[in-house]
Design a protein around this nucleic acid. Structure first.
Length: 304
DNA sequence: TTCAATGTTTAGAC
DNA sequence: GGTCTAAACATTGA
């Protein structure tokens, strides 16, 4: 569930907490979560035990110099010649805990919630710093990964290479947006927004919210959009993402900030996750539609 | 016991 | 190459 606003919030949290700290040791509790080199997903499934030891040995003694973000990927620059790439996928979390004391946090499952003590049954990697603080990587579904890559190989990592422009950067222009729209005329507008090679960092939550902002139904084909709708859609992308960022993202599912706090944007969702409820603007019942196996929610009156 | 749901990314068919 | 479908991953609850 972490999308651009959530991952950027986590990046900022890591910048404030772990940057400048020196890693004393790393505990890898589930070797399949980590990998070495510019590997693709197929290599991630290999599960050799030497891998975890090598991973830990390469990281121990390193200082975290900075934390960057590209799309939904986090890049932790280490003082040595490696960068740690982290993708949280659906349920990955980074939680920072001062000193050695275990910190109480919440893990929210798809339905319901429980409070668990850290480290818990979904903690897979623990970074222990020289000053006694710790950074926990938790991942209920185990879909995320931590990949240690030599600095010179970072540009060759396939996902990083293929990402489209950052929607909050100057490189994301209306000219680019319309050119890509022209090349995918039959694609539904929701799947267009969610395609990471077109624009980075947008998933199911924010594609729904952006389309509500733009007044466009998720199933509309790109070629059917009027110029005015195209422009509105383009302007809603940074508008919605920046608004979500101001609220530290949406805590639906398992997303939490690095300090364990929730993101509050979920309270402001106009359509996502609100199928069957009424639209705040016009009171119509929010409908849902399946597109490419994904559920999209929209207001049938506010969105055309 | 089976199956749908969940999100991202990749692979394959047409 | 565009477009669509399915699969992989793990867990949960209906």
């Amino acid at each position: 569930m972490p999308e651009l606003p959530e991952v950027e919030t986590i990046r900022r949290g890591l910048s404030k907490t772990v940057v400048g700290r020196v890693i004393k040791s790393v505990a890898v509790l589930l070797p399949k979560m980590i990998s070495l080199g510019p590997a693709t997903v197929s290599n991630l499934r290999k599960n050799d035990h030497g891998k975890a030891a090598k991973f830990a040995a390469l990281i121990a003694g390193q200082k975290i110099v900075s934390v960057r973000r590209r799309a939904k990927m986090l890049l932790l620059d280490l003082s040595g010649p490696h960068t740690l790439l982290v993708h949280l996928k659906m349920t990955g979390q980074f939680i920072f805990a001062k000193s050695r004391e275990r910190k109480i946090m919440k893990i929210f499952n798809v339905v319901g919630s429980r409070r668990l003590l850290l480290p818990h049954q979904y903690t897979w990697v623990i970074f222990r710093f020289r000053d006694g603080s710790s950074l926990y990587y938790n991942d209920l579904r185990q879909f995320g990964y931590l990949r240690l890559v030599p600095d010179e190989d970072v540009p060759r990592v396939p996902e990083l290479r293929d990402y489209g422009p950052e929607p909050l950067s100057a490189g994301f222009t209306f000219e680019y947006f319309s050119a890509r729209a022209k090349s995918r005329p039959r694609l539904s507008v929701k799947l267009f927004l969610m395609d990471p090679t077109i624009v980075a960092g947008i998933g199911n939550i924010y594609s729904d919210e952006i389309l509500y902002c733009a007044g466009i139904r998720p199933g509309r084909r790109m070629q059917s959009l009027a110029i005015s709708q195209s422009k509105k859609l383009f302007s809603c992308i940074p508008k919605v993402l920046r608004e979500a960022l101001r609220h530290h993202g949406s805590s639906v599912g398992d997303y939490f900030q690095v300090d364990g706090a929730e993101g509050t944007y979920g309270r402001l969702h106009r359509v996502y996750g609100r199928g069957g409820e009424s639209c705040w603007r016009c009171q119509s019942v929010i409908k849902t539609v399946k597109l490419g196996g994904r559920t999209g929610s929209f207001c049938p009156k506010c969105q055309k």
